[in-house]
């Protein structure tokens, strides 16, 4: 444990685990027989889950409609590609803007509601957008999805190939860049204030904090990150359909985050990894029944690891280290 003057610096510093984790993600590409398409999916879902973590894990606001922002980014990238803006990086950045505005407005709306009402409002907004996109066939192609999306080579050099090699590095790069951004965001004083509002909003008001206004800001940032994930999906598959906006997707991303563990950014990534690898493996075993095991996993996680897999592992590790330290008779008491 770091000493008092080093406390914040210690939290903000990159640990060896973190560096190893990112090296492993990059290195996985070179493993034989690795399914890089699956990994790209994990990066995109991981980013999506991470965006929800900012809202739920750090600020404590549950959303049952986060796919609205994912879908907004996905369709925005789709329209850009379809109508001549094929450059992927700028397209990705532009796609984050409408969703950020949408997130900001959502934050304004939900400032004063909580509990079931909050879940219903976020769900309702998601369904409105879904219904609108699905029915506006002239604009969006309806259930058939948006066709004819062209994406230029990445940096003018790397085509998006059918093996998904460019898609792999592009998704990983975008995920890492946004992770670095979000990591800095949550380690800033504003991030501390978000945690404070999660813990005790009334006291934050009595510290002079604009608690309600901050909800709009965190919603906007979270929505922008979710939109980036959606835009990545569109750009790497050159296709977008209303499924990007579905309630199913909102539920899935929540499930991933809860499985991985909310409140540490990595939880979303780990959750996406567990969920998608399990799905891939189980669906190969029995294409019809794999949802049973996802359901069971969800029930077990909320029953036995209330905080999710990652935090439970951390606690377990810390306990183990403390016991080992004691067994050796050395080390300070934890």
């Amino acid at each position: 444990m770091s000493a008092v003057p080093e406390w914040f610096a210690g939290k903000a510093r990159w640990s060896g685990f973190e560096i190893a984790f990112w090296c492993a993600l990059a290195g996985a590409y070179f493993l034989p027989n690795i399914d890089i398409a699956l990994l790209s999916q994990i990066f995109i879902w991981g980013l999506f889950a991470m965006s929800l973590d900012l809202l739920l894990g750090y600020r404590g606001i549950a959303s049952l409609g986060h796919a609205a922002f994912f879908g907004a980014g996905a369709y925005c990238a789709g329209f850009l590609g379809k109508y001549g803006w094929g450059e992927p990086v700028s397209g990705l950045l532009i796609s984050m803007l409408p969703a950020a505005a949408l997130g900001w407005l959502t934050g304004k709306l939900v400032q004063r509601v909580s509990g079931v009402a909050l879940l219903m409002v976020t769900l309702g907004l998601n369904l409105i957008l879904f219904d609108f996109v699905q029915r506006s066939t002239a604009l969006t192609g309806g259930d058939d999805g948006l066709q004819g999306i062209a994406v230029d080579p990445l940096l003018g050099l790397f085509r998006f190939d059918i093996f998904g090699r460019t898609a792999y590095w592009y998704s990983l790069g975008a995920l890492f860049a946004l992770f670095v951004f979000l990591r800095a965001f949550v380690h800033s004083p504003f991030g501390l204030a978000l945690t404070g509002s999660r813990e005790n909003a009334r006291r934050m008001i009595m510290l002079g904090s604009p608690v309600e206004g901050d909800i709009s800001i965190v919603f906007a940032v979270s929505a922008a990150a979710a939109a980036a994930a959606g835009a990545l999906l569109t750009q790497t598959t050159q296709f977008v359909s209303p499924a990007t906006l579905s309630f199913q997707r909102s539920a899935d991303v929540l499930v991933m985050l809860i499985i991985g563990g909310a409140g540490r950014l990595y939880g979303g990534l780990i959750g996406a990894l567990i969920f998608l690898v399990m799905k891939d493996w189980l669906a190969a075993l029995s294409p019809v029944y794999w949802y049973f095991w996802i359901g069971l996993l969800l029930v077990l996680v909320v029953s036995f690891f209330r905080k999710g897999v990652l935090p439970s592992l951390e606690t377990g590790m810390r306990g183990l280290i403390a016991r080992l330290g004691k067994a050796r008779g050395g080390g300070p008491p934890a």
């Binding site: 359901g295 069971l296 996993l297 969800l298």
Partner: peptide, 8 residues
């Protein structure tokens, strides 16, 4: 989770 399981 229970709903997922019931569906399967």
């Amino acid at each position: 989770g229970l709903v997922f399981m019931s569906i399967a």
